[in-house]
Lab assay of single mutants.
Amino acid sequence: CHSECLGNCSQPDDPTKCVACRNFYLDGRCVETCPPPYYHFQDWRCVNFSFCQDLHHKCKNSRRQGCHQYVIHNNKCIPECPSGYTMNSSNLLCTPCLGPCPKVCHLLEGEKTIDSVTSAQELRGCTVINGSLIINIRGGNNLAAELEANLGLIEEISGYLKIRRSYALVSLSFFRKLRLIRGETLEIGNYSFYALDNQNLRQLWDWSKHNLTITQGKLFFHYNPKLCLSEIHKMEEVSGTKGRQERNDIALKTNGDQASCENELLKFSYIRTSFDKILLRWEPYWPPDFRDLLGFMLFYKEAPYQNVTEFDGQDACGSNSWTVVDIDPPLRSNDPKSQNHPGWLMRGLKPWTQYAIFVKTLVTFSDERRTYGAKSDIIYVQTDATNPSVPLDPISVSNSSSQIILKWKPPSDPNGNITHYLVFWERQAEDSELFELDYCLKGLKLPSRTWSPPFESEDSQKHNQSEYEDSAGECCSCPKTDSQILKELEESSFRKTFEDYLHNVVFVPRKT
């Protein structure tokens, strides 16, 4: 048989008469490798580009789960590009990614509803959504962080984005990388972005840091009482949809009607710091009717980097990364020049730590249904340095008659930039024990000054392991946590139920 035959053949030295091919099969003959313009397919066939392209389009058009959109890589027609490569849609070739590779997620039936953290986790790592997304989240724990972890990498949506009755959302900033909504599939009414009845939605994105392009379709905003109209108009300008909307697409009466839409800028007039305090004062603000001013709200939190936005980490279910302080308005003076500047002394802060701070007014709604208010920009203030805590785990070892090696770990709280350490030492008198000992005694162990690591005695271990207080009263049991108490109650309830079950099964009433 021919060298490319495997198993047997019907005619000697003829690659077209093989029972099976050793390498690849091409047009009725066995070959060692697939010549151009053919590609290896499933490690035994040679196919042309049209064959591989037909497989790709067949799966793409069917949208069946589990099928493969075949691509070409290293002269092979394979189910998908290997790690580190992405497909070129024009020629199906796998090309190296520039940075992290995109991950295209194809949605069944063309859309997916995100109504819980669990459903959001199914899209973790996706960068391109081939379909439409509907966000409908009523509640949950730590929602802002969970949504950002699972949806934060999405850069492109081919269909539309719909935010509907998501009472738990305060902001859409968890879509931190969303840059493009194509609108290839539109919501009824030709809408590519749809926001309806979101009672706590206050911000779409921080438009000073976020760009969003909507290729096709219109915007729809109705019944978002805490979303200011200025935020919607800003989205029109940034996304390129200005002029597409009709009169009733953006409701003037049901958007922002319960919001404090600040239209003035508060400026800080005085800032002073110490290692654990920050004193702030800002310019006074009074609405047209000074009785509408209820006070100020001061927001602050630790910020290692200057990239904080107002609604980071917030949701309507209680999660809030900001510390909020309510401040009463100052006494009002008739003389504008003698107006008191409101302020606040922030206490209990960490030394040498940068804080993000902003302040906003708290006002009631005027009778004319106009909203007044003022808010400052987010500023960054760093507390002063102070003395560091003591170095940890000092170790001293003498390696000769004239040297001592000293080692330690950095302090747990540096409280500033540590530039150097101060080492103090003092000579001590020799131990009298060394002169009084009889060095001729056998088995004498000389006193040693070398360091030995501390260890816990058996008594201390027994005390720590004991669940009861000892007789001397030195140790006591740790208080039980809520989960331990709940577990004990469940076990007790189970024992009672099981005992009742045994009584009912074992003891049967005697027939009379």
Rank of each mutant, 00 (worst) to 15 (best):
K103Q: 10
K103G: 14
K103W: 04
H106Y: 12
H106Q: 11
L107Y: 03
L107G: 04
L107N: 07
L108D: 00
E109G: 15
E109L: 13
G110Y: 12
K112H: 10
T113C: 15
I114C: 03
I114N: 02
D115L: 03
T118E: 10
Q121V: 04
Q121C: 09
L123D: 00
L123E: 01
R124L: 09
R124Q: 04
R124V: 07
G125R: 12
G125A: 14
C126N: 00
C126M: 01
T127A: 04
T127G: 06
T127E: 00
I129W: 05
N130T: 11
N130C: 03
G131F: 01
G131R: 00
G131K: 00
S132T: 15
L133W: 00
L133F: 04
I135L: 06
I135F: 10
I137L: 04
R138A: 05
R138K: 06
G139K: 11
G140S: 14
N141V: 13
N141H: 13
N141M: 15
L143V: 09
A144T: 03
A145S: 12
E146G: 14
E148I: 13
A149H: 07
L151R: 00
L151G: 01
G152C: 09
G152I: 00
L153I: 14
I154Y: 01
E155G: 09
E156S: 05
I157G: 00
I157P: 00
S158R: 08
G159C: 02
Y160N: 04
Y160M: 14
L161P: 01
K162L: 13
K162Y: 12
K162V: 14
I163M: 11
I163L: 04
R165E: 11
S166P: 01
S166Y: 02
S166Q: 14
S166F: 07
Y167K: 14
L169Y: 03
L169F: 14
S171I: 02
S171A: 11
S171L: 01
S171G: 13
L172P: 02
L172H: 00
F174D: 00
F175L: 11
F175Y: 02
R176Q: 14
K177V: 08
K177G: 06
K177T: 13
K177E: 15
L178M: 06
L178S: 00
R179I: 12
L180A: 10
L180K: 10
I181L: 06
I181H: 00
I181S: 00
R182S: 11
E184D: 15
E184A: 10
T185D: 05
T185P: 09
T185L: 11
G189A: 09
G189T: 04
N190Q: 13
Y191R: 04
Y191A: 11
S192H: 01
S192P: 02
S192V: 08
S192L: 00
F193R: 00
F193I: 09
F193S: 00
A195N: 11
A195T: 05
A195E: 00
D197T: 12
D197I: 01
N198L: 05
Q199N: 09
Q199K: 15
N200Q: 10
Q203D: 15
L204N: 03
L204S: 05
W205A: 02
D206W: 04
D206Q: 07
W207H: 04
W207K: 03
S208Y: 05
K209W: 07
K209E: 05
H210A: 05
N211H: 10
N211P: 08
N211K: 14
L212F: 14
I214A: 06
I214Y: 02
T215W: 01
T215R: 12
Q216V: 09
Q216I: 05
F220S: 09
F221R: 00
F221L: 13
F221A: 15
H222Q: 13
N224T: 04
P225L: 06
P225S: 07
K226T: 06
K226W: 15
S230T: 07
E231H: 13
I232N: 01
I232L: 11
H233T: 13
H233S: 12
K234G: 14
K234P: 02
M235R: 00
M235A: 10
E237F: 11
E237I: 12
V238Q: 08
S239E: 01
G240T: 03
T241I: 08
T241R: 11
K242S: 11
K242F: 09
G243M: 04
E246P: 13
E246Q: 15
R247P: 08
D249Q: 03
I250A: 06
A251L: 08
A251S: 08
K253L: 11
K253N: 07
K253G: 13
T254Y: 12
N255S: 08
G256R: 05
G256H: 03
D257K: 13
D257E: 04
A259C: 15
S260P: 10
S260T: 12
C261W: 02
C261T: 03
E262P: 10
E262F: 10
E262V: 05
E262T: 11
N263E: 15
N263F: 03
L265M: 10
L265T: 10
L266K: 00
L266I: 04
K267S: 12
K267Q: 11
K267E: 02
S269D: 12
S269M: 07
S269L: 10
I271Q: 13
I271R: 01
R272V: 12
S274N: 15
D276A: 11
K277S: 08
R281L: 07
R281V: 03
W282S: 00
W282M: 05
E283T: 12
P284M: 13
P287N: 01
P288R: 11
P288Q: 09
D289Y: 06
D289V: 04
F290N: 14
R291A: 07
L293T: 03
L294P: 10
L294S: 13
L294F: 06
L294G: 14
G295A: 14
G295W: 10
G295D: 03
F296K: 00
F296C: 02
L298S: 01
L298Y: 00
L298A: 02
L298I: 06
F299Q: 05
Y300K: 01
Y300W: 08
Y300A: 03
K301G: 05
P304R: 15
Y305Q: 03
Y305F: 06
N307L: 13
N307D: 10
N307K: 03
N307R: 01
T309P: 06
G313Q: 13
D315K: 15
A316S: 07
C317M: 11
S319Q: 05
S319L: 13
S321I: 09
S321L: 10
W322G: 02
T323A: 13
T323R: 04
T323L: 11
T323N: 14
V324E: 14
V324S: 11
V325T: 15
V325C: 14
D326S: 04
I327L: 04
D328E: 15
D328M: 08
P330L: 08
P330V: 14
L331N: 14
L331M: 13
R332T: 12
R332Y: 05
S333H: 10
S333C: 10
S333P: 05
N334Y: 09
N334Q: 12
N334A: 08
N334F: 03
N334V: 08
N334E: 02
D335C: 04
D335T: 12
D335P: 03
D335K: 12
D335L: 05
S338A: 10
Q339W: 05
Q339E: 02
Q339I: 12
H341R: 10
H341I: 08
P342I: 11
P342Y: 07
W344M: 02
W344K: 09
W344P: 00
W344V: 06
W344T: 06
M346Y: 01
M346Q: 10
M346E: 02
M346W: 01
L349M: 05
K350P: 01
K350G: 03
P351A: 05
P351F: 06
P351Y: 08
W352L: 14
W352N: 04
T353P: 00
T353Q: 06
T353S: 12
Q354L: 14
Q354K: 03
A356R: 02
I357C: 15
F358C: 01
V359M: 03
V359I: 09
V359W: 01
V359S: 01
K360S: 04
V363T: 08
V363S: 05
V363A: 11
F365V: 15
F365P: 14
E368D: 15
E368P: 03
E368R: 15
E368I: 13
R369N: 14
R369D: 04
R369H: 06
R369T: 07
R370S: 06
R370A: 14
T371H: 10
G373F: 03
G373D: 05
G373C: 04
A374Y: 05
K375A: 05
D377L: 02
I378C: 06
I379Q: 15
I379E: 05
Y380H: 02
V381T: 04
V381L: 14
Q382R: 10
Q382A: 15
Q382D: 04
T383C: 06
T383K: 00
A385T: 13
A385E: 10
T386R: 06
T386W: 05
T386S: 07
L392Y: 13
L392T: 08
D393C: 15
P394I: 13
I395P: 01
V397H: 13
N399A: 12
S400Y: 15
S400K: 15
S400A: 13
S400W: 02
S400N: 10
S401T: 10
S401M: 04
S402A: 15
Q403I: 03
I404V: 14
L406P: 00
P411H: 05
